[in-house]
Amino acid sequence: MSKYAFFVGCTIPYRVPFIETSLRKTLPIFDVELVDLPFACCPDPGGVQAFDSVAWHTLGARNLCLAEEEGLDILTACSGCFESLKIINTHLKNDPDLKSKVNEHLKDVDREFKGTIKINHFAEFLYTEIGIDKIAQKVTNPLSGIKIASHNGCHFLKPTDIMQVDNPELPQKLDHLLEALGAETVPYLNKLACCGAGTRTTDMDAALKIAHEKIVGAELANADALVTVCPTCYVSYDIGQRLMTKHFEKTTLPVFFYAELLGLAIGLDFSAGFKMHTIKVQEVLDKLTA
């Protein structure tokens, strides 16, 4: 059993808690123990960073300190948290001026950033640390018969020089992870497009229009579902589709978080969580059992 500090974030536990269920149920099956620590907001790479870059680094460094003090690497399933924590961790490790500035602030709360841990995103972690083969071995209910449009999202991949997860112009790891579950992935238009969440606080309508592009692309490719690895993207597309009806014709493309499908494929029961999706997923589940 390898232990990780589980950085659950804000969106997962209080907006889409069923995603948390899928993570807490699936990861132990791959010998991963999740440890909860009193983390605060990562903090938000959009809002807080925009407000004050040094404060963003400092608040983020405090989270890193908590994990450093426990001697644990961080595992997160939110791409926003992943981006914040990984960028801050990298910046502080490489920029001694910034590090001393931040540590000066952290002294006030008796903490010090040392730079001893690594930040993992669960999807990247599954791909590199667990491996496609091991995942495929655990699959008991292969997801055959459905076509999936995979959505990597922005912060899982970019800024590329820091994230170093996959090729941002031709990401393939998520497709491989889905294929390991027996699903078919389809190429589709706007695969690389952003979910628009970053614009939500400024202009909800513009954000919805951005998110809508993705739904159009996936539907054109006859996808049965859209799959994300970021709770924020999930919200943009699942809850977003209902809000989009203000501007566009109603669409009902089911959206999943990767860990949910992983759980399904290895035989877990997530029916309580599936009921909490805004866009009904029953049709896809029926297709799978048919």
Partner: peptide
């Protein structure tokens, strides 16, 4: 900025 495809056409 980008060349994309829907499987038939390029965009």
């Amino acid at each position: 900025a980008e060349v994309e495809t829907d499987g038939t056409n390029l965009y």
